[in-house]
């Protein structure tokens, strides 16, 4: 090692490594986003523990609700499973988006983002690249939920196209919602605080929705809350797609929500990222 450093100071070859060279052209936004996506994938592959929440959360909630409460809520565990699986899919994805915000917050605090920000790359590519890695997590989470449901006897009438469409819709919503947590991560300094806020928002939104229970069984005031909850609309659309009823209006409503969330929070995140 010391010899190498002597070489740095001494030999022409070592000097050449540090000497100025023509600078490559600025990279395109797509290749930057892909480079960041690759970074995220590499980390997922290396520390599979990161996927703990993605895998364990849906398994625990599916088993717990199906066998513990399924009979009481849905009449039988088999019937309840058909009701629950689309809901668990939504809840898992929502909770996973919270991890996105916390992970970004850790990145921002680590100093490595300082270096990224002094490079001649578009800030948008940095954030989009980070999201690319999250899409992989979201896809994996969806596969776990659907796979477990199928193993337990879930037989959606929408068949493969319906299930695929449902997963795509939930992932699209997850990506859009991630922009909210991205903006939050820019504002809040601590990863723990970001995670705390996302959970404080996402768990109530999940429980006070139609994920687990049929709103008709609730008292009137609570039914009003549940019906106003955007998660309820998302779950209704996903259930519709999975059961093959093609709920066009519901799906359009969700896509509009996705567009709105992205239109507001993506530029806001970028702005905060640039001026941070």
């Amino acid at each position: 090692m010391t010899t190498t450093l002597d070489a740095i100071a001494g030999t022409a070859a070592a000097r050449a490594i540090l000497a100025g060279r023509p600078r490559p052209a600025r990279p395109g936004t797509l290749s930057v986003a892909l480079a960041f996506g690759g970074r995220a994938l590499r980390k997922i592959r290396r520390t599979p523990v990161q996927l703990f929440d993605v895998v364990v959360h849906p398994v625990v909630f599916t088993l717990m609700f199906t066998y513990l409460f399924g009979g009481a809520i849905g009449g039988s565990t088999g019937r309840y499973l058909g009701y629950l699986v689309p809901g668990i899919l939504v809840m898992t994805l929502l909770v996973t988006t919270g991890t996105t915000g916390a992970a970004l917050s850790i990145d921002l605090a680590s100093g490595v983002f300082d270096r990224f920000r002094t490079l001649s790359i578009r800030p948008a590519a940095v954030l989009v690249g980070a999201l690319l890695g999250d899409v992989v997590r979201y896809a994996l989470a969806s596969a776990v939920v659907v796979g477990l449901g199928l193993a337990l006897g879930f037989r959606p009438h929408g068949n493969v196209p319906g299930v695929v469409a449902a997963v795509l819709l939930v992932v699209a919503f997850g990506i859009s919602l991630s922009w909210v947590w991205t903006a939050l991560a820019m504002v809040m300094r601590s990863p723990g605080a970001v995670l705390g806020v996302t959970q404080a928002v996402l768990y109530p939104l999940s429980f006070f929705s139609n994920i687990f229970v049929i709103p008709a069984t609730l008292p009137g005031w609570l039914r009003a809350v549940v019906n106003a909850n955007p998660v309820t609309h998302l779950v209704t659309a996903v259930r519709g797609l999975m059961s093959g009823t093609a709920p066009g209006g519901q799906v359009a409503w969700i896509l509009l929500a996705c567009a709105l969330l992205t239109a507001v929070f993506a530029p806001l995140s970028l702005r905060l990222f640039r001026t941070r």
Binding site: T47, S110, G111, V112, D114, R115, T118, L119
Partner: peptide, 16 residues
């Protein structure tokens, strides 16, 4: 940014 690079006080590296 085309002309500079920065090595910050806390290592600007990805630990993972």
């Amino acid at each position: 940014r085309d002309r500079i690079s920065l090595t910050g006080q806390y290592a600007s590296l990805d630990d993972g």
